[in-house]
Design a protein around this nucleic acid. Structure first.
Lengths: 223, 223
DNA sequence: GCAACTCTACACCTCAGACAAGTTGGGTTC
DNA sequence: GAACCCAACTTGTCTGAGGTGTAGAGTTGC
């Protein structure tokens, strides 16, 4: 049991250690874990900290504690949450998936956009062109525009997928903006404007290409 | 805040109380909860017990605690399951999303496929061409081939998304096959073969187009 | 011999208090 | 007005003490 715990909350690290033992097959399904005091000493954390780690895994449906009896493994593999997946994988993978979804959504939007969709996109575009004090603010108005485009596709699944990406992408975007601000702001805004115009003119190929080109640029900037 | 806690572990009861406040809208998304000491006193449990309750909800992805800052609501209700979303929306929406994911995955696969990927795809293709007794069996070998293609893109997010679609698509496909069997089986198999060959020859555009054409055909057949 | 009962050791559960580590906002200084 | 500093919070961690429930060993009665 490697107590190689270094970063973040101790309780979270302890949970990782426990999960590692379970995944490694050291504690199979139904197995009873060592006692709290023993385990806490082995991992090198206090008893309450270990208890919090156990609670965290209990919340995920991995462990179950029975008073007077012990703590047991009730699921060897956790139903991996979507957010957890996205936090684990590389930003590059997420952006590639965004290309897939947004390029297709842009093409569909060019077919199906209503006047109301168009108004919403242009409003979002205007807000994006305004002055922004922080990276957070800029990320938000940018994501809002992209979301309007996906919404204009009138495909609920694509929109749901996009929304699933938002939190992860937002964090990555803010990080990037703080490290390396957009150098050519005009060109960036023009690219987004071109996307909206392609949709306005009902040109699926152009819309798809605009979206793809922009995201490919983001992909390059991040790698 | 009704401290009507009576049965089972106090920590679990406290978690229920917290979840109740969240569900009732008392603490909306992003809201900061009262301090641990305050909250513990209000609910009528010790601070460590309250902390375990918070950990339990954190494990479920409902709360997030930031040291020095506070505990925040990050999800107003348990993440709506993909299966639930996909059952609600139309098959057409799902297929459009499949086009987005699989066409992009096919293009990436054409870039990144390894010899091992290629072998797996050809094996799946061969199994698909064999004789099949039931619609269920055919649906399974078909999905297996499509999955191999997405896997060859070496993008974990796309693969995860595809897997999320599988159950819903499988049901729809079996339904369709029973109502209206594939009339030109040879052409259908040839289309899949062409997709694999395009990936084998590292032709992203062709691979993407094969995938898109095939799925568009399915889309048409269903509407 | 076997079943039922009792009891003890051990498990988790809860609490209280203390201190460490991090964040936030206001006041001070230049 | 901007940069800095500090104090008052916040959550994070540890310890020690009791409470409550379980399981198994030991005993008892048939």
């Amino acid at each position: 049991m490697a107590p190689a715990v270094q970063q973040g909350r101790l309780a979270a690290q302890a949970a990782e250690v426990l999960l590692g033992c379970i995944r490694a097959g050291e504690w199979p399904l139904g197995h009873k874990l060592p006692g709290e005091t023993t385990l806490a000493a082995e991992i090198g954390v206090g008893r309450s900290t270990l208890r919090e780690a156990i609670r965290e895994l209990a919340g995920q449906g991995v462990l179950e504690s029975r008073q007077g009896s012990g703590v047991f493994v009730i699921s060897t593999d956790i139903a991996e949450d979507w957010d957890v997946v996205l936090r684990r994988v590389s930003v590059a993978s997420v952006i590639e998936a965004r290309v897939a979804i947004e390029a297709e959504a842009a093409a569909l939007a060019a077919h199906r956009r209503t006047p109301s969709d168009l108004r919403a996109m242009r409003r979002a575009l205007a807000r994006r062109s305004g002055s922004h004090h922080s990276a957070e603010e800029f990320a938000d108005v940018d994501m809002a525009l992209h979301r309007e485009v996906v919404a204009a596709s009138h495909n609920e699944v694509l929109l749901e997928l996009f929304d699933g990406f938002v939190p992860r992408v937002r964090v990555a975007m803010i990080e990037m903006l703080k490290l390396r601000p957009i150098h050519d702001y005009e060109a960036d805004q023009a690219a987004h404007s071109a996307l909206v115009e392609a949709i306005a003119e009902r040109d699926p190929a152009a819309a798809s290409e605009c979206s793809r080109a922009h995201l490919t640029g983001v992909h390059r900037a991040l790698s």
